[in-house]
Design a protein around this nucleic acid. Sequence first.
DNA 1: CGAGAGTTTTGGACTCAGTCAAAGTTTACC
DNA 2: GGTAAACTTTGACTGAGTCCAAAACTCTCG
Lengths: 148, 148
Amino acid sequence: MVHVRTDTDRWVDMLREHGHHITAQRLAVMQAVSHKPHITADEVAEASRAEIGSISKQSVYDALHVLVQVGLLRRIQPEGSPALFEDRVGDNHHHLICRDCGCVVDVDCAVGDTPCLTARNDQGFVIDEAEVAYWGRCPECHTHHITR
Amino acid sequence: MVHVRTDTDRWVDMLREHGHHITAQRLAVMQAVSHKPHITADEVAEASRAEIGSISKQSVYDALHVLVQVGLLRRIQPEGSPALFEDRVGDNHHHLICRDCGCVVDVDCAVGDTPCLTARNDQGFVIDEAEVAYWGRCPECHTHHITR
DNA sequence: CGAGAGTTTTGGACTCAGTCAAAGTTTACC
DNA sequence: GGTAAACTTTGACTGAGTCCAAAACTCTCG
């Protein structure tokens, strides 16, 4: 009987490796984010409540903070938007962001892994992340924008 | 006698073209931003006061809004930072951002003008801007970080 | 120069997202 | 079982930006 590793197994291991406890709240938060990428903290709270009954605002923020810290989640904050959380981590992907509705879509890196992290002239900076956001209008808003 | 076009001449023309009035407040705001790129709204307010005596918070925000709208200024909002304003517009440059002190430095586009605006798979988005931010530590903070 | 519209002032109030607090309770783990 | 981590409760607080509303001021054009 081969045990198939689930997402939860992976989350559990990662938390343990970093010395954190495994709590229902943390797993619910992970579930919420993995179900809906680019989710706000408020939405995480709601989804977590639907799953475990209740969770305090502070616990939501605490859990999100820990999960980002151990590397299970990534936090982005597009201009004009509350912070968004995603579970796609460890790869070099970018975001398409709609100026109207604020929806965010992942897109793979166009350039290649290494060069994308290299600024033409880093001026002594030690760079650890290149964040690329493509701003524009999503199909729906674009259509709506034209007909208006 | 050749009239040398000053920055102010240029600002005046741009505002007029878009049907906006030329006010001391707006020119002071432009001056503040051109003197200190990547300046916060608060800093703009202070610098403008130093120049013209007084300016209300609302007028600062109004002026910044108009100046961004006509294309004289650009607004960026790095994660965890208040909005920053710069007068370098119309070219495709990116930003180096320090995670510790929050300082922002311009850097030219490494890839070339056109490809930088092209996402690998835009999924129906109509893209009008590619925003690239290189996150890391500036020389000072990096040095400080190591010795700590 | 005068009129009309744009802009600023004044003196706040308000909103939102996130942070902080503090004591008690619950839970995970060794 | 004991201890430390984590959660709950019940708010208060902060900063950045937005909104308000009437009066006053200023710019621009004919």
